[in-house]
Design a protein around this nucleic acid. Sequence first.
RNA 1: GGGCGGGUAGCUCAGUUGGGAGAGCAUCGGCCUUACAAGCCGAGGGUCACAGGUUCAAGCCCUGUUCCGCCCACCA
Length: 889
Amino acid sequence: MNTPRELDKGYDPAGVEERWYQHWEEEKLFAAEDEDSEKTAYAIVIPPPNVTGMLHMGHALNITLQDILCRYRRLCGDNVLWMPGTDHAGIATQNVVEKKLMAEGTSRHDLGREAFIEKVWEWRQEYGGTIIRQLKRLGASCDWDRERFTMDDGLSMAVRTVFKTLYDEGLIYRGKYLINWCPRCHTAIADIEVAYEEMQGGLYHILYPFADGEGGLVVATTRPETMLGDTGVAVNPDDERYAGLAGRKVRLPLTDRVIPVIADNYVDTSFGTGALKITPAHDPNDFEIGRTHQLDMIKVIDDQGYMTAEAGEQFAGLDRFECRKAVVAALKAEGLLEKQEDYIHSVGTCYRCKTVVEPNLSKQWFVNVKPLAEKAVEVVRNGETKIIPENWTKTYYEWMDNIRDWCVSRQIWWGHQIPAWFCDDCGEVIVAIETPEKCAACDSNNLTQESDVLDTWFSSALWPFSTMGWPDQTPLLKTFYPTSVLVTGFDILFFWVARMLMMGVHFMKDVPFADVYIHALVRDEEGKKMSKSTGNVIDPIDIIEKYGADALRFTLTAFAAQGRDVKLSESRIEGYRHFINKLWNAARFSLMYIDDSNREETFSDACLADKWILSRLAVLRQTVAEAIDTYKFNEAAAALYRFVWHEFCDWYLEAVKPDLYGKNGDDRQQGSRIVLRRVLRDILVMLHPIIPFVTEEIWHVLPGEDTSIMQAAFPRAETGPAMVTPDAGAEAEMELVMGVITGIRNVRGEMNISPSQALSVIVHAGDQETQIRIAANEAMIVNLARLSSFAVETIGEKPKFAATSVVDNVTVYVLLEGVIDFAREKARIEKEMAKLEKDLKGVTGKLNNDDFLNKAPAHVVEKVKESFADLQARREKLQATLDKVMEMA
RNA sequence: GGGCGGGUAGCUCAGUUGGGAGAGCAUCGGCCUUACAAGCCGAGGGUCACAGGUUCAAGCCCUGUUCCGCCCACCA
């Protein structure tokens, strides 16, 4: 027999978590079986965290949910592959290493490209494992032997293959366009990498004088510095104010240029002055207008954000924002600034570094994604991939339908260098998977590779199949592609999920995943996204050290209701740590009474509490399985919490204590021990996906369980023991008994009677059957309500000095001769009466309503009638009691 | 401007074939009852944002209003 010594008094996760994680890894319990496995394949690819990443709450939630799914599926007998890895995170990683170099007094430019990249690899070798170690502390059961990195040889091959294929298909092209340029990251970024923010700015009205006469045109702009690059002014052809002006010329202030007035429907007559200055090199709309009207494109801001020589001697070299002030001052001086007003408008910033993005003319590589997007929309429409919760599909369609070409080239060094070579002699462009030896056009050996690298999301888009060995047709792909589900936050729905769908459908001819589960974002108390730059981060590792990984995991799971963001508070984590401890102590207690002899085949005679808890357990396993199957993690957590604490601990354990103590004979003792063992075992297994560490720790003290809990089977109706079965009769009877006990406890509490004072109780049951059922459970009632004497009869005289509680058709009299406080009892009953009256009023209203009686379904009417009778009976009994109390008082 | 989500107890939030408003934390009262004071037993507390509609019946379905949050959009 086990003794409580084997488990400490309180649960301390500190050593436990590390010990079991190590054990799981050593025993290879996370490893997927190979393609010969008979089991059902279940696969998840991890959203690869940045290799520079530090675990944040978003990861913690994301990983916890995936881990729940994977662990649950393993318990269900599936062959689970959870593919882990990290993302090389081009710009982010380059930034980190550059900072380090700066601290060392050098820079990437000092080192040169090759040496710099060498440094980044070194950095990764040294620090890149941090995030992985942190995922392990959370308990992530990934198949670590298969860990991938987006810059691995295999994945790089996949990247080059995809690039080459798309190029050959005409879906990748290179050209000079206006792109979003981040002057700080010093690279082009894609449209979706621009984050728009409302900013306080000004709207400046500037007079552009006619070149050939009096007067002029007033334009309005938020960016006066860009006027230096203006090559036209546009008005709407239907605008009567400016009728006949098209074709005339204006003099561009602060320069010696004369620019044309053009007519274009794009111009909104109601905005500003109705005259629009055109800067084709620095505004996307102006770029389009400039192209249609063949205006010059003059670049006045350089890649660093400084004014170019083209901006004029006066302004060249100024920072763009300094220049804005200078231009405004100069205009004022010349009397050309007509008006200046405060203006709040949205400004594009780099989503990574928050620097104001500069639209810039530049030669870049683009993917024509429209054809890919169409196919990726189709697979969602026809249900091959299901997005959960469903409301995200609308957002997905919306975005995909309006998708624009994807700028994939980045002017940084760390990343997949674009597999394109330029012939120095003839200018030919060669796109190839392997480095070409000579020019395909002129046989020259003077080839220079494109220096740009690819957008990091280009390689992540291939993740579901590149990690499994593609372009080779590997057994892994055959077994696990398409994957079962992708679990991620909505913030990368477009960045990543949409692109994986596009690439997966295009290259694999099959969706990358059957389900996409979009979970909540973890936010701070103000509902803001947690981010390092905002400084509102709660560090999961701190939380794990303080409360344990299980407490954090359970909290996140309980929070993870679909469609609602998580605002995390530490007090709630503390609350769930209490739950872990509760479980621990319940197990500690149970294990004192469980031994290897408690085999189920010897189980014959169950008491009411046994039948009841087994019935509840049967319902629970159904609830939990269904909840996890449908990604309703919070429902699974809530059901388990309620069962363990409020049914198993509060009622069952208390009810069977006398049995366990051996007070009711050997048979009863053995019976309850068998049930106890079964319930505890099943609880542990069902909880294991959510709280793996503590369940494993307890599992190993369970006699007869010598393998890991990870190798147990999830309790299911079809495979579980027959004793675990729904039993409506037992549940109803138990509820009756619980009602009587609660009634007595209520009196005790309200009348301020000490728990140590045993009470005498007489119960009047409404009918004989009820009487029999209550009498049969007298021992439980006496025990749990702490009674010194108990009697139940169908009819009898109402005791004189008693506090009364009415439940269903049962009246409970707590005898209080000599101690009853009539005033208190009167108040208590009146309170009860008031409640009753309120309920009765509602029910009566329904029953007096013919429409209700005629139209409501029979079972609903029946229920209401029953409840009416019940309420009325209770009222009568209470009234009688109240009358008596009034007499005495 | 468009789209999405939300408004339920003091706080944080659950609550779908529409049919008796819930949990955790906090508060109040009583308990060291031999697993657990990180606990046990009780109690109080809500016009389910507002207005209308559908229905026998609405927190839930429909319409409008309002407030908050997020996403998207080329108004200089």
